[in-house]
């Protein structure tokens, strides 16, 4: 009880500090999320045309995905130094897998009959993609983006270990100064952020699913 009281007290007295970290965290994640979405979806679309390219690219992102995050951050520090840039690069590499994979799966699992009808009616490759394949794959793509967003927000908490801003700063400071309330406050806010983002995307996903079933 004492702990929870202290936690509340801390969040209240240091609200400016936490709001600033929350905003930093949000900006850091958002930049990574935008880059991942653009790069991931584009890559997914491109590899959907060739099965060989797909297995290579998905295999590669799978391997990258298995590298422990601390090791990944550490590795990039030696190349791009400490700070936000390095954090974003690492976040992007992690987040690509679910987006590329889901885009690829979504596009390639569109019913052959539907594709044949669209091609047979004289769709250009671009029309086939933009009017048929992509809209039909959208629910699967959104599902991939959703898990990527939650993961990126969570992972951005580790970014402060390499000097980036965000709520990881509070967690890191709590751990190093043996200040448990600080660690927990930072962690809770990360979780809250991920939870809200997931909820918003969930609503969007549901809306899309209703239309395309």
């Amino acid at each position: 009880m004492e702990f929870i009281k202290n936690l509340g007290e801390l969040l209240k007295t240091r609200s400016d500090f936490f709001i600033e970290l929350l905003l930093q965290h949000l900006v850091l994640s958002l930049i990574a999320i935008v880059i991942i979405t653009v790069v991931g979806v584009t890559t997914g679309v491109l590899i959907a045309k060739s099965q060989k390219a797909a297995s290579v690219v998905i295999g590669l992102t799978n391997v990258l995905y298995t590298i422990p995050s601390i090791a990944m951050f550490g590795f990039f520090v030696s190349i791009t130094g400490i700070g936000n840039t390095t954090a974003i690069i690492a976040l992007v590499i992690y987040g690509l897998l679910p987006v590329i994979r889901n885009t690829y799966v979504g596009l390639t699992e569109v019913d052959d009959q539907i594709l044949e009808a669209a091609v047979g009616m004289g769709s250009t490759p671009w029309q086939l993609l933009s009017k048929i394949q992509f809209p039909l794959a959208l629910p699967v793509i959104i599902a991939g983006i959703r898990s990527m967003v939650v993961m990126t927000i969570a992972l951005a908490g580790i970014a402060s270990f390499i000097g980036a801003g965000g709520l990881g700063v509070a967690i890191w400071r709590g751990i190093t100064t043996n200040f448990d309330e600080m660690t927990v406050a930072g962690s809770l806010l990360v979780a809250l952020l991920a939870f809200v983002a997931d909820g918003i995307l969930g609503i969007i996903e549901k809306r899309l699913l209703r239309r395309t079933k």
């Binding site: 009959q113 539907i114 004289g122 769709s123 250009t124 029309q127 009017k131």
Partner: peptide, 25 residues
């Protein structure tokens, strides 16, 4: 072109399905 499994586009209304050939032109 008409095919066996019909291949209607599930994400489009019947109106948009019918007009698809006109839409792409």
């Amino acid at each position: 072109y008409v095919i066996q499994q019909v291949g209607l586009f599930p994400h489009l209304t019947i109106e948009k399905n019918i007009a698809y050939a006109l839409d792409i032109q």
